[in-house]
Write a protein that binds this DNA or RNA. Structure first.
Lengths: 103, 103
DNA sequence: ACATTGTTTAACTAAATGCTTAATTACTTA
DNA sequence: TAAGTAATTAAGCATTTAGTTAAACAATGT
């Protein structure tokens, strides 16, 4: 039970950064290469890699190599559930209807 | 939209610490004084206050004074929803059935 | 007023985080 | 094999975070 709190805190910490959260949003329904992520996130490639590494080490993100691209995706299904729950809870004060709230 | 990601990251950061998460668990369905929290959390009173302050500044926790006790409670209803969602998602690998998973 | 209990604040230190830059590895293609 | 693109790693630095300790503030009871 203590371990569960520790683990969850550790997991949350690994996603509690604007850049990392943004990356997770992007990866919610697609896999993307590092440079594709870079196009949407606006920081250096090295910095993207560093943030990806934090989430990789936590088991949040998985990747595969293809040619000289590295495609990233969300590894843990629970993270996708969490993202969806958070969008429901925190991102529903849209203009009026809750039709589309991505981007 | 950018602001929403920033805000959520900031909020998540404020709860992404084992002690703070533990405090939130305790406050899920009751209000507790600082010393009551201290009985369950096992660190110094000063440390508890510091963690509470982080969450108070973020608007996660509210408090009221009574005598010389300070009773704390979760201020934001969305936090309660988030806690419940997280328990469902991350704390359901119980012994067998998912009957009671508190404490 | 004084002592006691509950809580907060301040000062300090150690450790972790985040970003930049430059160098390096991995793969592809000419 | 040399050049080019994609991604990673390492080093360095500034900032933030976390915890300890001691002092301070607030309210209660003697």
């Amino acid at each position: 039970m203590y371990q569960q709190v520790e683990d969850l805190a550790s997991l949350l910490k690994s996603i509690s950064h604007p850049i990392r959260l943004k990356i997770l949003c992007l990866l919610q329904d697609q896999e993307l290469s590092v440079s594709e992520i870079r196009n949407s996130v606006e920081t250096s490639g090295a910095n993207i890699t560093q943030h990806l590494n934090i989430m990789r080490n936590q088991g949040v993100i998985d990747f595969r190599k293809d040619a000289n691209f590295i495609y990233n995706r969300i590894a843990d299904k629970r993270i996708i559930e969490l993202m969806k729950a958070m969008q429901q809870i925190f991102c529903s004060q849209s203009t009026k209807s809750a039709s589309t709230q991505n981007d």
